[in-house]
Design a protein around this nucleic acid. Structure first.
Length: 416
RNA sequence: GCGACUAUAGUUCAGCGGUUAGAACAUCGGUUUGUGGUACCGAGGAUGAGGGUUCGAUUCCCUCUAGUCGCCCCA
């Protein structure tokens, strides 16, 4: 036998969730679920394991070679831990084919894995909400998805000044590029520079634009500086305004990294000057089913990761205070009252209360202290008096009060 | 893949080339044997691994490992 000590650390980049962490996670997921279902989205799920071919077909080589967890199973199959939800979603949608009644609205909250260097707000395992609507050609779909994002932010307690929704239209950008005479390679490079613009100084930006154009950038820079908001964006903004969403702006340089977007794209920005960055976003991607040989399907969706929204909520002091699941803690004076206490606990559980029992038989003050440290709201101590009279003192831990009541009144008193 | 920084108790941090490595918080016990939050007393618990310089290294140097942050990337 070896006596090497096993580290208590979790595997690099993945996270443990202690009860306090899980509580916050459940809060966040609860808000995500509520917002999605409010708009009539149906929950779906898939395995975290997918055939590597699925990603090979859809994504670039770099993703497969460097950024995913891939291994060979005992049967010689190549397997990949899902790095995102969209390929699985596309596979499921394609498999159902014409069975699906359009429009279809689906959402999922699941964990994903990618092999990269962990750093602030980014791990090798992350959880993400995906919400997508299929079968709607018009801007109503974009407006709904952006509206859903907005609703979700509000449900977290964010106010309009906290965040800003930036919108762009890839087709419009392409039109601008075409009018300026850029070929397809130049257009692709230019879109990458647009995407990075926020991180560049104006000088560097202009220099890089010049490099792509291979000469004088003056006309092009002048053109994009004076570009007018396209009609599609005007429509989206107007429809959102009608819904009460007024922190929406046009941003010609918003591209989003993904190549698969085909139309409107949007991102939600944190307006905190100390942390002014993109939190999440989405857009239209009508070519989703290409790799399955299916015809085009209109699709608009967005994804929201748990780590970025957590940091936002933390910075705005919008995270909930931890509360344990137990409503009531039962303390026992002496071993002989245990059966009585267990029966009481079970009765109360059958009535819908979450009840934990202290089996330490330590001094009663100590048992109460344990309940206090655990943050449980109510305590009842069981001893000779209680067993004899069938009457109980319900201690409210925050007010320090105790009220005498009958067993039949305990549940009502706690739930009030 | 590249770069910077860091590594001391469960956690956050001190410390000094030299006797027994300190504190706070947390944990446990006690002051208090039918009732908790304050206060007081006490206890357990640590120098990431290997090598080098030195009479002596937790301290200085090197390697490894791990972590944090940034770049790249971001589905």
């Amino acid at each position: 036998m070896n006596n090497q000590k096993i580290s208590t650390r979790s595997y690099k980049g993945v996270r443990d969730f202690y009860p306090e962490d899980k509580f916050v996670q459940q809060y966040i997921f609860g808000k995500m679920q509520a917002a999605a279902e409010k708009f009539g989205y149906e929950e779906y799920d898939a395995s975290i394991l997918e055939s590597t071919d699925l990603y090979r077909a859809k994504s670039g080589e770099e993703l497969i070679n460097e950024q995913v967890y891939t291994f060979t199973d005992r049967g010689g199959r190549e397997v990949t831990l899902r790095p995102e939800m969209t390929p699985s979603l596309a596979r499921m949608i394609a498999k159902r084919g014409n069975e699906l009644v359009m429009p279809t609205r689906w959402y999922n909250i699941g964990n994903h894995f990618r092999y990269e260097r962990p750093q602030k707000g980014r791990g090798r395992e992350f959880w993400q909400l995906n919400a997508d609507i299929f079968g709607v050609d018009g801007l109503e779909a974009e407006v709904e998805i952006i509206g859903l994002s907005y609703e979700l932010m509000k449900s977290f307690g964010a106010v309009n000044d906290d965040f800003e929704i930036r919108v762009n239209d890839r087709q419009f950008v392409q039109k601008v590029f075409d009018e300026s005479g850029l070929d397809s390679e130049q257009s692709y490079k230019m879109s990458k520079i647009f995407d990075k613009k926020n991180k560049l100084t104006q000088d560097v930006f202009e220099e890089q634009v010049g490099e792509v154009l291979g000469g004088d950038a003056g006309n092009f820079l002048n053109k994009i500086q004076n570009v007018e908001t396209p009609q599609s964006i005007k429509d989206v903004i107007e429809k959102l305004n009608n819904r009460g969403v007024d922190n929406v702006v046009f941003d010609l340089f918003l591209m989003r990294g993904l190549d698969y977007y085909t139309g409107i794209v949007f991102e939600v920005f944190d307006m905190d000057p100390a942390n002014n960055r993109s939190m999440f976003g989405g857009g239209r991607y009508d070519n989703l089913l290409d790799i399955f040989g299916k015809e085009k399907l209109p699709a608009v969706g967005f994804g929201m990761g748990d780590m970025t929204i957590f940091e936002f909520l933390q910075s705005r002091d919008l995270l909930p205070v931890y509360k344990p699941s137990a409503d009531l803690y039962l303390c026992i004076f002496d071993f002989e009252y245990t059966d009585f206490t267990d029966k009481l606990a079970q009765d109360l559980r059958d009535q819908g209360l979450n009840v934990a029992v202290d089996y330490s038989y330590a001094k009663i003050g100590k048992q109460i202290k344990v309940a206090d440290k655990k943050g449980i709201s109510f305590v009842i101590c069981i001893g000779e008096d209680e067993v004899k009279k069938d009457e109980f003192v319900l201690k409210n831990m925050s007010s320090r009060d105790g009220v005498k009541l009958l067993k039949s009144d305990i549940v009502a008193k706690i739930k009030q």
